[in-house]
């Protein structure tokens, strides 16, 4: 009965909700930045857009069943973790390269460090649910 939980149910429901909030927030922020003041800090704004894309992909991949979506989710969450660590470290030591904030600046401090915690929870949840798709597709 119990088995491996599905990615989009149980705690996954909450995880996807938080991802969706970040997908929305990052997209809106990047959209406004690029539309109204792109020349001020093009690198930071392109990075904002990239972060938004990663959150959108992760949200959709977590919500969809199947092994393919699982792989996409793993890739997105890995990129997200590397992104927040890289951008966080760069902005902590030399904020000059990023004159305006992104979601990942200072390890996501502007967002209560949720951007730092989220990919870790995402990876843990993927590990927890890893065999769920196999269970569905290969069950006799």
């Amino acid at each position: 009965m119990s088995g491996t939980p599905q990615r989009s149910s149980g705690p996954g429901r909450l995880l996807i909700a938080v991802y969706a909030v970040f997908a929305l927030a990052a997209s809106a922020r990047a959209g406004v930045q690029i539309a109204t003041k792109f020349d001020e800090a093009p690198v930071a704004y392109l990075l904002s857009a990239f972060a938004a894309l990663v959150y959108i992909v992760a949200t959709v991949a977590f919500a969809r069943p199947g092994a393919a979506a699982r792989g996409v989710a793993l890739a997105a969450v890995t990129v997200e973790l590397l992104g927040v660590l890289t951008v966080g470290t760069v902005t902590a030591f030399d904020p000059g390269d990023f004159p305006d904030d992104t979601v990942w600046s200072l390890y996501g401090r502007g967002y209560g460090f949720v951007p730092l915690v989220l990919p870790v929870l995402g990876l843990l949840w993927l590990r927890r649910t890893w065999s769920a798709d196999r269970g569905v597709s290969e069950s006799p």
Binding site: S9, G10, P11, G12, R13, L14, I16, A17, A20
Partner: peptide, 12 residues
């Protein structure tokens, strides 16, 4: 999104 999950996680 919450209503489709009939557990405490929906409420969360």
């Amino acid at each position: 999104w919450a209503l489709a999950e009939k557990s405490r996680w929906g409420t969360s």
